[in-house]
């Protein structure tokens, strides 16, 4: 008889229990940052250790895991995290949003609407939305406790003063459940509306900063703004060159050494599904599409 080299999903049971307790508290107080005893993971802070610990604490043998990095399933970080859990938890993995029960993400929310029962786990570099304005942790905690969020609007005020409009286009602060201001992690502001009353459970893990927070299903998530400068999610004025989609968040990629550029869906799964269904973009059949999908 030989003992397995790792506990199920890498973390020991006591640690997972500790993280689950933090998650329960986070779900009970939507948007509130719960401190937790972040562990060393077999990769460096900044590579998704917070998200991985949350995933490890909620994943079970029957789960199907999808991991994306900036919308893509095939980047190094996404691939290695997916393999990590395939190895340590023996779970099935997928690149299809609709098939996944848990989706760990860095910097995007999938285009395919999430459904009840799915869990979206965000990797968070900086959980404190007030940090850049108020460096003192004692003070930001008190500001959250007393819902003193005037300072948050100062940041947006400055943006409008400098650029004539709110140019903040990612990690755009939101008010959760009418109570806590929260950093949605560096997702594009384009994705912010998807958080609002989502049927999925949204969990956030910040490994280096040792914070966990959550948005339970069907919770109000409102992007901060001014009456005369309402929130406007930003997106490139273009269609996906591969699938022709106009409603998705697009990445601009350089496709040759002559400065040729192409807008493509940042969500690779969504784009591939559309192409399978017969949708064609202006640059359909481009070599870029060959390495994708499947």
């Amino acid at each position: 008889m030989s003992l397995p080299a790792y506990s199920f999903a890498y973390l020991d049971e006591q640690t997972k229990r500790m993280i689950r307790r933090a998650l329960l508290k986070a779900v009970a107080i939507p948007g509130y940052q719960v401190p937790f005893a972040s562990r060393e993971m077999p990769l460096a802070y900044g590579w998704g250790t917070g998200g991985m610990q949350v995933t490890a604490a909620v994943i079970g043998p029957d789960d199907v895991l999808k991991v994306i990095d900036q919308g893509a399933d095939d980047t190094t970080n996404a691939v290695s995290i997916r393999r990590f859990f395939a190895l340590t938890a023996g779970v099935r993995t997928t690149e299809r949003t609709a098939e996944a029960t848990i989706i760990q993400t860095r910097h995007r929310i999938p285009e395919t609407p999430l459904a009840a029962g799915q869990i979206l786990v965000y990797q968070v570099p900086q959980p404190e939305p007030l940090r850049k304005l108020e460096p003192r942790e004692t003070e930001t905690r008190r500001m959250h406790a007393l819902a003193e969020y005037g300072l948050m609007h100062v940041k947006l005020y400055e943006d409008i003063a400098r650029h004539g409009r709110i140019t903040l286009s990612y990690d755009y602060p939101v008010l959760v459940n009418g109570r806590h201001v929260m950093a949605p992690s560096p997702i594009p502001s384009f994705d912010n509306p998807k958080m609002h009353r989502s049927p999925a459970l949204q969990l956030f893990g910040a490994g280096r900063e040792k914070r966990i927070y959550a948005v339970p299903p069907y919770t109000d998530v409102v992007s901060l703004a001014f009456e005369d400068h309402p929130f406007r999610p930003w997106k490139a004025e273009a269609a996906c060159g591969l699938c022709g989609a106009t409603e998705t968040y697009l990445d601009e990629v350089v496709v040759d050494d002559r400065g040729g550029r192409l807008f493509v869906c940042s969500d690779t799964d969504y784009c591939a599904e559309r192409r399978k269904a017969g949708h064609r973009g202006a640059a359909a059949g481009h070599a870029l599409a060959a390495g994708e999908g499947g």
Partner: peptide, 25 residues
């Protein structure tokens, strides 16, 4: 707040008091 503009410094207390109209601030 030394890194915030003069206008933002003056406007902060208005925003803290709940004013949400940029033009009026």
């Amino acid at each position: 707040r030394m890194a915030v503009s003069a206008g933002g410094n003056v406007g902060e207390r208005l925003m803290a008091a709940g004013m949400r109209h940029w033009g009026r601030i």
